[in-house]
């Protein structure tokens, strides 16, 4: 298969390296120009940091060197796997990211799968009967959702379901004041539902509208007209021709939406005080925790890139038209 030949894989890896390099450069230049004292942001004075630690930080960040050299010394450290120490968590950045990402991953995966399934289903309902009552309601709803900020949806759910009705906890990933060993899976799921639902809302609108357009297009195509003329019912032709043709772009779109997913998780995690990467990065930004901001930025770029890569690979894998030798484009 073409997508898997070594040359192409190599080019992809080079592109990824280039993107990460560019991002690190831009992020570093931006941060270096921040109107904060570097020492202050790396080791805030209100926290008791010993002289020895200060020297260690100055050495790690190359604070007494010119900017270009500073960038490369930082990059060298990162490549060796040392991303510095987060000042707001007082732990190595890599440890914070690893710990926080597991939380985020569960949240994002749940939201992602839910928005994909629900969005696709709604899109098929719309496209099956264009301009019908269901289509109009769902479409209006999608347009409203597309204009609604994630955090406000979170606030509404929090207000309605947690505070008014008391169905869900107010936030966090586990019950407050419970020992880690006593936290059950049920507790975790109970805490996950609202943030995950909030986060999934962002993805639903785009996938619904996209699937609807695609299904309408397929249903108006010559081959479906022919199938209908042959005596296939509308429902059967949707099942046989519609779903298959809509599924490929929908799956690709869903994988390509990792960027919005990650961005949305920043807001959703903040509303629900959910301990994930998103709430970590905004906390880092507020506290001036430079190493963590840089670390999460790089990590998020990697995350988005992997999503796009999967989207590309799946597209060539699933689409028989561009699979193997018989490439059309």
């Amino acid at each position: 298969m073409r997508a898997h030949n070594p040359a192409k894989m190599f080019i992809t890896l080079v592109r990824m390296a280039l993107l990460l390099f560019g991002t690190s450069l831009v992020a570093f230049v931006l941060i270096s120009n921040a109107p904060v004292d570097p020492m202050e942001s790396f080791a805030p004075s209100e926290r008791n940091v010993s002289q020895e630690q200060r020297e260690h930080i100055a050495e790690y960040w190359g604070l007494n060197k010119p900017p270009v050299e500073r960038y490369f010394s930082w990059l060298g450290n990162v490549l060796r796997g040392d991303m510095g120490t987060s000042s707001s968590f007082r732990k190595p950045v890599s440890a914070v990211i690893a710990e926080r990402f597991t939380g985020s991953l569960v949240l994002m995966l749940t939201a992602w799968a839910f928005s994909g399934v629900l969005g696709f289903t709604l899109g098929v309902i719309c496209g099956a009967n264009p301009n019908g009552v269901a289509d109009r309601i769902i479409r209006t709803f999608s347009f409203i959702l597309a204009s609604t900020p994630v955090f406000w949806i979170g606030l509404l759910l929090l207000m309605g379901l947690s505070i008014r009705l008391g169905w869900f906890p107010l936030g966090l990933a586990v019950p407050i004041g419970k020992a880690a060993s006593e936290v059950t899976l049920g507790d975790r799921i109970h805490h996950l539902i609202l943030p995950a639902f909030t986060l999934s809302i962002t993805g639903i609108a785009s996938i619904t509208l996209h699937t609807r357009e695609k299904l309408v297009e397929v249903m108006n195509s010559d081959y479906v007209t022919f199938a209908r003329a042959r005596g296939e019912s509308r429902a059967v032709s949707i099942l046989r021709h519609g779903l298959r043709n809509c599924a490929i772009p929908a799956i690709t779109l869903q994988f390509a939406s990792f960027s919005e997913l990650f961005g949305g998780s920043v807001l959703a995690e903040n509303v629900f005080s959910y301990p994930g990467l998103g709430s970590a990065v905004s906390r880092a930004g507020i506290n001036g925790d430079v190493p963590l901001i840089l670390g999460v930025t790089m990590f998020s770029v990697l995350f988005v890139f992997v999503g796009n890569l999967i989207a590309n690979l799946l597209y060539s894998l699933l689409n028989p038209q561009i699979r193997g030798e018989g490439r059309l484009s």
Binding site: L19, T23, V26, A34, P35, S259, A284
Partner: peptide, 20 residues
């Protein structure tokens, strides 16, 4: 390509922190 690869919220946090 590069700017599209950074999630919007992360870039927003990064830039607003950097500019003060």
């Amino acid at each position: 390509d590069m700017f599209m690869g950074i999630p919007h919220m992360v870039l927003l946090v990064l830039v607003s922190f950097a500019v003060g």
